[in-house]
């Protein structure tokens, strides 16, 4: 796929790493500026989709195998729910982050980090799975 477009291939190779970096920035900077798990997940998925568009879905499936994506899809939700359950185990309510650390504010930070991480993982892997499923069908 796309063997006849050397410029597109070169440019997309250059772009994929910065896109992933930007996704991580959006993920972890969501506390301070616009951003968060939903946006970061989508941007991370875009990096994989660009790779799949340039080098073919089969090649991209070797980079991000389907079994791993399926696992990550569920894992993100589990991480989210698990953070809630840990809150219960530590004596708080479901999704109560105050009890995650000695200082309620630090607890909130940890809780939001984990929860946003869960959202990011799920959204990214879901978007990649959707693209692979549509594009991989003959």
């Amino acid at each position: 796929m796309m063997h006849r477009h050397p410029i597109l291939r070169a440019v997309s190779k250059l772009l994929i790493a910065p896109i992933m970096l930007f996704a991580l920035y959006v993920q972890f900077h969501g506390d301070y500026g616009p951003g968060g798990g939903f946006q970061a997940g989508v941007i991370l998925a875009v990096a994989f989709i660009l790779y799949a568009l340039m080098f073919g879905v089969e090649t991209a499936r070797r980079v991000a195998p389907m079994w791993m994506l399926r696992f990550l899809t569920a894992f993100g939700v589990l991480l989210y729910g698990g953070t809630g359950v840990v809150g219960i185990l530590l004596g708080g309510a479901f999704l109560d982050y105050n009890v995650l650390a000695a200082d309620p504010k630090a607890g909130q930070h940890i809780g939001i980090l984990l929860v946003e991480g869960g959202v990011g993982i799920t959204v990214a892997s879901v978007m990649i799975v959707l693209f692979f499923t549509f594009a991989g069908r003959k």
Partner: peptide, 20 residues
Amino acid sequence: ILTAIVVGVATTSLGLALVV
């Protein structure tokens, strides 16, 4: 709305899968 947008694309893709 920002959660609705992401959920919207997920449900749209389900609709597209049904169309296929």
